[in-house]
């Protein structure tokens, strides 16, 4: 499996956020995107996920342009954003079960177990703490498996125990041939990591 980006440029509200970003990522690798606030980390992730259109450049999955054939990239990745995409009125289990049905997968019990959520899974997410919500959100990665993880600040509001736990999940995913694109301020001390520093890229031009 491979994910390639070629010459991506992004304009938001007529402002050039970044330009000419390229990278290539293979199975078993993690891409760590670094940069100051406003450097365009989230925008880059949204572009990879296809939610944002780059003004220039293309994304290739398995060597094929996803713009030409969106189906090949469909459901091949999971995107974890800042917001938790959880409905406060539903319990953790219900939320996860909905997403797994929506994405046509079914791995909810394992997901609850991996993220140590079993004890709180039947509580409405509306009364969970920020960290608990984050874990429920991250559990979506296991509940709805996909080869590519796109992670926007995945460990914010987690304590050290759960950061380590998430790190283990990520390492296992990558060891099993998965890959991940990661934007975070925290150094997760991973092997197989590639760096993409948006601040440095900006300086290049």
């Amino acid at each position: 499996m491979s994910l390639n980006a070629r010459h991506l440029s992004c304009i938001r509200q007529d402002r050039l956020i970044f330009k000419n970003i390229s990278f290539s990522l293979n199975s078993g690798e993690v891409l760590w995107i670094k940069g100051k606030n406003g450097a365009g980390k989230s925008s880059l992730l949204r572009i990879i996920a296809g939610l944002l259109k780059p003004i220039q450049g293309e994304i290739l999955w398995q060597g094929e342009n996803v713009k030409d054939d969106p189906d090949i990239f469909q459901n091949q990745f999971r995107y974890i954003a800042h917001q938790d995409a959880l409905k406060p009125a539903l319990t953790g289990t219900e939320n996860l079960r909905f997403w797994s049905q929506y994405f046509g997968t079914d791995n909810v019990p394992a997901a609850l177990k991996e993220f140590e959520l079993e004890r709180i899974a039947d509580v409405p997410t509306g009364i969970m703490s920020a960290g608990q919500k984050k874990r429920t959100n991250l559990a979506r990665l296991i509940a709805c498996p996909a080869p590519l993880w796109i992670l926007d600040e995945p460990v914010s509001s987690l304590d050290t125990h759960y950061i380590a736990l998430f790190r283990n999940q990520l390492v296992r995913h990558v060891k099993n041939g998965g890959m991940a694109v990661l934007a975070t301020h925290q150094d997760l001390e991973l092997d197989f990591i590639q760096m993409l520093d948006l601040d440095a890229e900006r300086g290049k031009s």
Binding site: R46, A49, G50, L51, Q74, N75, F77, Y79, A81, H82, Q83, D84, A85, L86, K87, P88, W99, Y102, F103, G104
Partner: peptide, 13 residues
């Protein structure tokens, strides 16, 4: 939109 579900809904198959 507010809780981020819309992004996820748009990524479905």
């Amino acid at each position: 939109f507010e809780d981020g579900s819309l992004d996820q809904l748009m990524l479905g198959s």
